[in-house]
Simulated scan of single mutants.
Amino acid sequence: MSARARAGRPISVVVADDRAAFRRGLALILATQPDLRLVGEAEDGYGAVELARSLRPDVVLMDMDMPGMSGTEAARALLGGEHRPRIVLMTTYDSPGRREEAAAVGASGLLLKVSPPEHLLALLRAAGPPVTG
């Protein structure tokens, strides 16, 4: 259990991916973690931005490649706004260009979709805001 969970406030997460089955899998993984709380799901970058602005999550986990507004474009929009959640981007493709793109938009992390759940959880916990008090 993380220090945040012991402090009584889980890290709130919005998930955005255009594949419903993948979003559902992420939701199931997050549901097993007492220090992480899924607060919303979106199928594209527009939805991710709308949810993040209304729900003000600690972290937005989103696919880099979604139709309409990509995760990269959504990250730029969110990080340029009033509420700036931490962003963890996901990709199917491992390349230096992807890592550079994620860093350039200010993402807190980049997750390969083939990574084990432990990597996902570690990235979300590292991206979450520090425990205060």
Rank of each mutant, 00 (worst) to 15 (best):
G40I: 01
G106K: 07
Q33H: 14
A126H: 11
P10T: 07
R4F: 05
M1Y: 09
A48G: 05
G25F: 12
A107W: 07
I87Y: 10
R98L: 00
E82W: 02
M66Q: 05
G25I: 08
A20K: 10
P10L: 11
A42F: 10
R4H: 15
I29M: 15
G71F: 10
V114G: 14
L78T: 05
P34L: 10
D58T: 07
A126M: 02
S2P: 01
V13W: 13
G40K: 11
V88W: 01
P34F: 12
A52I: 03
G8W: 14
L111D: 12
S115P: 02
S115R: 08
T92A: 15
A3H: 14
L51Q: 15
F22I: 15
V88D: 09
L123N: 02
M62D: 11
V88G: 05
L26K: 07
A127K: 07
A77H: 02
E101I: 00
H119N: 13
L120Q: 09
M69S: 01
G8D: 08
P117R: 13
R84Y: 00
M64E: 09
V131W: 04
G106H: 02
V13H: 13
D35H: 13
M64T: 09
L121K: 06
A77I: 04
L89M: 13
P67I: 02
R4W: 06
P117N: 08
S95A: 15
A102D: 05
M62T: 10
L61P: 10
R37F: 02
Q33V: 14
R19Y: 15
H119I: 05
M1I: 10
A75T: 01
V88L: 07
Y93D: 03
L26C: 14
E43F: 00
R84S: 01
G81V: 03
F22D: 01
R23P: 09
T72E: 13
R6F: 10
Q33F: 04
E41A: 13
L61R: 08
P10E: 08
S108D: 12
A126Q: 14
T92Y: 03
D58K: 06
P10G: 10
G80F: 11
L111E: 13
A20C: 01
T32W: 00
V39S: 01
G128P: 06
A77Q: 15
P10D: 08
G47D: 00
